[in-house]
Structures are given as structure tokens and as C-alpha cells.
Design a protein around this nucleic acid. Sequence first.
DNA 1: CTGAAAGCGCTAACAT
DNA 2: ATGTTAGCGCTTTCAG
Lengths: 346, 346
Amino acid sequence: MGKVEGRRWSGVTMSDVARRAGVSPMTVSNVINGRAQRVSEQTRLRVLATIDELGYQVNMTARNLRMGRTGAVGLAVPAFAPGYYAQLAQRLADRFDAHGLRLVVERTGASRAAELDALAAPRLSSYDGFVLSVVAGDAADLEKLSIDTPVVLIGERAVPARFDHVLMDNVGGARMATEFLLRSGARRIALLGGAAGGAESMHELRTQGYQAAHEAAGVPVRDELVVGCDFGVEDGYTATHELVVRGIAFDAVFALTDSGAIGALRALAETGRKVPDDVQVVGFDDLDDGRFVVPALTTVEPGNAEMADAICSLLVERIASRPDQAPARVVMPEPRLVERETTRRP
Amino acid sequence: MGKVEGRRWSGVTMSDVARRAGVSPMTVSNVINGRAQRVSEQTRLRVLATIDELGYQVNMTARNLRMGRTGAVGLAVPAFAPGYYAQLAQRLADRFDAHGLRLVVERTGASRAAELDALAAPRLSSYDGFVLSVVAGDAADLEKLSIDTPVVLIGERAVPARFDHVLMDNVGGARMATEFLLRSGARRIALLGGAAGGAESMHELRTQGYQAAHEAAGVPVRDELVVGCDFGVEDGYTATHELVVRGIAFDAVFALTDSGAIGALRALAETGRKVPDDVQVVGFDDLDDGRFVVPALTTVEPGNAEMADAICSLLVERIASRPDQAPARVVMPEPRLVERETTRRP
DNA sequence: CTGAAAGCGCTAACAT
DNA sequence: ATGTTAGCGCTTTCAG
């Protein structure tokens, strides 16, 4: 499929209105922008009538160019559908609204290339500020990022020091969840979405927390219980199924995301495991969905509200104060465990 | 909290680069836009180096103004978080990508005022085309809508004839679901989110289908089974709970949305009702979530893919062909029932 | 109260 | 292969 071309058909301009109403464009502008003191009531009404008659509409692109600002903040997420991003968008939109800024959401596509593309200078220049959820790019990629548009980064990747960065305590949260399961008597905790090597991705960090909790409790980590998978519902479902099929025994599941946990619950139900009696389950993120699945999901609440607050205030500050003289800040709220029905009290 | 003001700090322009590289702005433009034939390799490299040195970035606002197009289409939805809108956005983004258009998502807030605001000319002028999910505005409101930006409307409200309109077969789908329940032996079907009067909203249309199925089957509609509620998870949960508390007997639940149905499932589990043995449940929308809840949700698939296809192709056509001479089109796919585990075979 | 001039940063069209 | 001219539609500034 080809690109869509063609430019907007003419459209009525401010000058058209001005000419027709027998005034200068400036007066039309004043009317439109409610600078009442500068226009007589009579003229105002005439201009308004002409605007209506001609069906004139302000061209935001032109206004933005002239004013050097857009009133919009961009949020780039890997995908729209995962509950986590949708809820994040919702929260941010509320907060930015309070500052007179609209939030507009774009999709990066989670590939490194797509993510960088979203961050390319052009895209950013359409916004007064930008929030980027970094899942794929590395520090070097980000280094090239626009310096003209204030940016707040979210996500666990290491980011260049010049950026404000808001992130979850992945290690701490995972450790908290794992410790809770261990205290509840679990000894064979499957880790859904776990990863072995490095230290950069969400998978890896949460895996570290899982391991740390085991070490602290003197319980060995069994490799066969650490199954790598993506963080969608379907992924959690498939991974859990596989575990069962392969005959690997486990008495708990720690899913790296609530979505994954919900998939796991489904797989456990299908294979006749009772939750939490046979298998306990803990997720991560505190999605709204988790409260309504049966049984309701115990999860790690990573400080979603605090993160949204931080993202908003950091960005608003940068936007308001021109040059980024203020040093970059890092915000990482304290996670907490939300006990519901998929676990037993220790 | 006050508005955020202040304009973008100067920033390096194309002229800056040109001057520094000892060429004209036009040459810089040619380099940036890859018009290779028009620039010697030597100059190209020099310009590129200068761009790098100065950290220059194209100003999209200026480019958009000059070119009269933005390469973006807007999607306005009442809220980001409900699964339905997130999935819609996802689907649309895929399709528009194929046409070289980025999808950017904005939130209207579901109030009539907010919705109209989103549709105000200024907002629209930032996009090559716009998709609006109409939930609150009426035909008269929409009549005032921009004529300069191609718009496709989605949603069940009556809309002015000049707009392309994509909608679900709400009545047919609801009737299909209800008939299925009736055939499966249900005689007291609770309608979650039902409405009495009018004919405009999704609630009302789906209620009509529910009633039509009852009439056709000669089963009376009991008013106490039609409970009005919003379409979120929590709403379905609360409504179902209330039904139980009030001691109203029912052997099936038709929830107007999958989200509502998922809430209902939770409430039924809490109150000890077995699904589908004691109570059958059907939703509407075919959200991904429905496949993974326990038991998996039977639902009406309203033709999501076809709707996304239609929205995209209608809009792309309008964008490509200047004046809207083509008559407006209405697309309403055939719904189908997806049987899963919350119902019994008739 | 109203208007004229200037220019935001870019690119199409036409020179050279 | 490169430069010049003009202007997208708006608003800031300053003059009437």
C-alpha cells in the first residue's frame, strides 16, 4: 500500500475572514483569542458572524509555528492494548489536563528501530514535552535524542544521565513478592517471564529480585522453574501450560506481569490446579483487571500513582523553565504488595 | 494548577546549518529529504557533518505548515483504559501504518462538552484525517464539525449524513446473544447495562435486540432483570451483586460489554453461582481478555476487524481525494456469536 | 480600538 | 548542482 499524499484543500484563512468582514487579520485574531478589550463589541459580532458564514477554522499548525508551542505532551508506548500502558496513559492524561496540556499517545512498536523512530527529532518537535517508555533502546541510542524538547524517560533500561527518569523498583518488588510466597510456604516458585543473563530489562531485574529472595531464605533456585516468556496474557497462559505438560512440579507462580498472571490462572484452571491451595500466584503491576479475575490476583503495586505524579511534575517543570539547567532526577517509588485471593497468608 | 507557558528556546534552524556549512537552506533541505540527485556527495557529507555538529533537528511544525499535511491521523476515544478502545487503537494503528500514516490517540472524556472540544476545528487541523468515537454528542453537535479535515465517525449515535460512519450491529448482535441464551433454556436473562427509553445509545440499541429476541420467542421481558449500569468491569460487578442481594432470580446474564461480563463473572463466583450451570453469561465486543477469564467468556464478536478495515479505508480515500464529493458511506459488519465456556450448547 | 509590517522554519518552483 | 524568491497561516510588535 502506498503512502497517502495530497495537501489539504485550501481552506478558509483568517485573511479571508478579515477581508470579508472588512477588518484586518489582526482583529480577527483578537476576536478568536478572546482579547475582548481590544475589539469593540460591534466588530466582534460582525467578525463572529463572518467566521460562521465562511466556516472558518483556526489552523493550529500555523498557530503552533508562530507561538513556538503546541499545548500537547506526547506519550510513546510500545503498544496500546496491554492494560499497563492504557492505565498509564489514563493516569497521565488526567494529570496533564490539570496543567492545561493534552496528552496524545503514540505507539512505538517495541522494536528498537521503531522506538528510535518515535524519538527521532521530528516527532518530538510536535510536542511541548515527551514521555517515552523505553523498552528496547539502549543508552547510546538515547544519547542522540533531541535536546530541544523536554523528555522524561520511563522504564528500566539504563538511560543517559541527562534525562529525568521514572522507574519501578523492579528488583525490590520482585523480591517482595517472592519473599511473601516463600514465607507462605512455597518452595518451588515458577518464575514466568524470567531471564537469565544481563541486568537491563524488566525481565532481568525482576529475576534478580526473585533470586535474591531465594538466597536470603536459603532456598535454591531451580532452573527449570524459570521460564522465559513475553509479558502478555497469552504468554503467561502458554508458559504455564508448558510447565504442566513437561511435568515440572511447582507450588507457586510469580508472573512478571499481572497480564501474565491472568494467563497463568487460566492455564491452572484448565489443568485442574486449585489456586491458592495447590498453587499460589502473584503478579506485578496492579492492573485493574486483577481485582476482578477469579480468584482475585495478589500483586505488586509498583507505585503507579506516584510514578504518574512524578512523570507529570518533572516534565511540566522542564517545559516551564526553558534551558535544562536543573540536573536530571530519578524517581523510583516504593512498591508494596497487595494481597488478594491467589495467595495464602504466611 | 496553572497553564504551562513559555515558548521553545530558539533551537538550531535550517538556516543556521546552511550558513555554517556555506550552502543555501534549500540544499540543507535537499540533503535532509534525501533528494540525492540534487546534491553532490561532497556537499551532502559536509551538510550532514554540520547537522551533527550543531545538533540540528527538523521542525515538524514548520514543515507541516509548509506542506499542508502532517502524516498523522487522530483517533479520539472517551478513555484509554477500557479494553475495547485500546484494542481498537491497536488495530487502527496497524492499518494506518500500512498507508504511511501514524495513528495518534487522544482522549475525549466521554462528556459531551469534552467530546465536542476534541472535535473543535483546531484539534482537527493538526491531522490529515480524524476518527471520532461518538458516545455523547448528538447529530446537531456534529453538524458543526470541521469540513476541512476528513472525518470518520464510529459509534451508534445518529450522525449527520455527510459523514462516513462505521458502526456495530448493536440490535442484531444483542438479539443474537439473547436468542442463543433463550435457546439454551434460559428464561430469566438479566440485562446488565440495559436501558428503557430512546434509541440512540449503545445501551438502548442492545436493549432493543434483547427485547426483540424475547418477543420472537414469546418470553416476557421482566423489568426487574433489566438493570441500568455503565460498561466497565466494576459496573458489571456491582450490578450483578445488587441483583443477588435483592434476591432477584436469574438464570443468565447478558452484559452489554465484555468488561461488564467479566465483572459479573466475579460477582457470580463470590456469591457461589456456578457458570454456566446455574447462570449462563454472554458478553459483547470480543475483547482479548474474555478468552482467558475462567470460565472463558461467550460473546458477540461485532466484526472488529471489518470495522477497523472500513475505518481505515474510508478515511484514506477521503484524505487522498481532495473535495468530499463522494457520498458518505455507512458500514455495519455482520456480528457473530463466539461460543466459549460461560454458556451451554442449546 | 484597529492596522501594517515582519517573520516563525520550512519547501515548491523557478532561476542560475 | 546550487541558490533565490515567495509564502504556508498565524501572532507579536509597534504605529496609528
